[in-house]
Structure formats: C-alpha cells, structure tokens
Amino acid sequence: MRLDRTELWLLASGVVLALGVFVLPNWLTFLLTIAFAKGLVVQGVVVQMRAGLVSFGQGLYYCIGGYTVGMGGQWLGVHDAFVLLALSMVAAAVVAMVLGLLLTRYREIFFAMLTLAFSMILYGVLAKSQSLGSTDGFNVHGITALGWTPGSSGKMFVYVLTCGIAAVAAVFLHRLSKSSVGYVCEAIRENEVRVEYLGASPRWTLYSTYVLAAAVSALGGGLTGMATGHVDPEMAYWTTSGEFVFIALLGGIGHVAAPFVAASLFSTVRTYAIQFVPHSWQMILGFVLLGIIIFLPKGLWSLFKRTRKAEARV
C-alpha cells in the first residue's frame, strides 16, 4: 500500500499532534481529544453529504459508540480500549445494516427526517432505561490498553489514541474519496438517474456508504465516552446531530482534514463563547451558518444542487 502526499501529510500530523501530549497543557489535549472524536462523527456526516444525503441523526451512531464502550466495561467486563472500539464499530454497523435497508429508499428531507426519527427513538429508549441511568447516563472508567492500565494518565492515553485513530481514519477516508465508490457517490449526488443508467445501483452504493459512515461515527462516540468518562442519552438527541451537521458544513466536503479542523475550531470557540457570552453561543453558530450558506455558495450549493432536469426529462 503506497501512500500519496496527502496521506503522508495526514499521518505526520497525527504523529506530531500525538507527540504534543508531552508539551501541551492538559486542558488543550482534552479539548483536542473531544474535537477529534467529534471530527470522526462529522466524517460520517460528510461521507453521506458527498453522496447528497444530509443526516440529521448521526448522533444515533455517536451514542451507540459511546454506550457500547460504557456498557462493555460495565456489563461485559471488557476494558480494553481497542476491543471496546471494535465492538462500537460492530454494533453501529449492525444497526446501520438494518436501518440502511429502509433509509436508502429516501432522499432529501425524507432522509433527514427519518434519520432524525431513528436517533430520537434511541434517545427515548435510553432516557427511560433505569438500569442505564435514564437521562443522567452513567460513567465509563477503567479503560486499559493491551493489558496496560494507564491509571492517572488515562486522559493522555485517550488523547494519543484519538490522534492515532483520527489519522488512520483520515487516510482511509481520503482513499475512499478518491476511490470508485467515492466518485460514484458524487455522481449520485449530481445525477442519480444517470448512475443507474450506467449500470450501477445507487441504492447499494448509498447503503454501503451509510454503514461505513455509521462505523466511523461510532468510533467518535466511543472515544468521547472514554475521554469524558461519561455517556448519556443527550448524545442521541437531535440537537447533537444538528451540531455535527453544522461542523460538517463549516468544514465543507472538499478535504478530508476539514472535519477535524472545523471540529477543533468549533470546540475552541465554544469554550470561550460559553465563558464570555454564555447566552449568545448558539446565536453565533446560527449567524455563522447563515454566513456560510450566503457567502460561500460554491462549496455548499453544489452539495444540494441535484439535477432536477434529469428526473423530469428522461
């Protein structure tokens, strides 16, 4: 497997950031851990956006990832970070394989609404589950790695782990975007009818992309659970998913590193905004979002401009 320039650059950034654990203050590594973990969830949103689908329910897989890590430790006695993350991905992929069968029949706002509804179902279930701590959720602790117990340096370990996973995921997603599937997804966004007439199944392509996006997002959820030491149903609430859509639009779909950069920016601004203008944070987000839509139409417009004529005139 040969690496191209972007891929080398992504891996190098991952290594440099991970080495930052020795010099960066704790608050910053924690902020970056959360940002990159969220960035992974956003990657899931972006992969679907490339294919023209906007998921307003990616929180579903974020939450599944987090809860799998939490429950694995609590009930299965699994504490190894790698095993837990693998379980998260599997759990998310299994759920996505089932829901994807239905979801890939829908496009546009129907897809958005249905993804939202599914994540709210999970929220509804978790919020009423006494044994899972209802709306308070529960704590995640005792993470180990291949037999090693990080103990008090747990947060630092999760940071390094997150940097590593984010870098590897970025390389993988970069490959994906340059692969046949990546281009076919773009082609589906621009002209689904033609893709069908070229002999491919848009639905199957979207299905596999959906499952993949779920697995990547679950990684983000699992890492967040480990980093914060806590999971709660709020992870599946629709406003959480809205945040992911926001970050995805902020970064755009042009570059594989964009979700991570956007998520870092988002987390940093939020940290300060909540401190200095506590009741204007969302308002800032709202105006920024409108600004992106109005002033950066190129990146966004192309996203949603599907060839209507194609459907009408075939």
């Binding site: 340059k178 692969s179 046949s180 599937v181 076919v184 070229l198 002999g199 199944s201």
Partner: peptide
C-alpha cells in the same frame, strides 16, 4: 468518463482502489 468506465467494469465499485 472514468465513472462510467469504472461502473462498466464492476457494478459494485471498489472502496479502496482509486478511480484514476
């Protein structure tokens, strides 16, 4: 053209092999 060709080669396009 490459998208058309890649679909013609295989109905299930590859995830990791580049288009070009």
């Amino acid at each position: 053209m490459l998208v058309a060709l890649s679909i013609a080669e295989s109905p299930l396009p590859s995830f990791l092999r580049p288009l070009r």
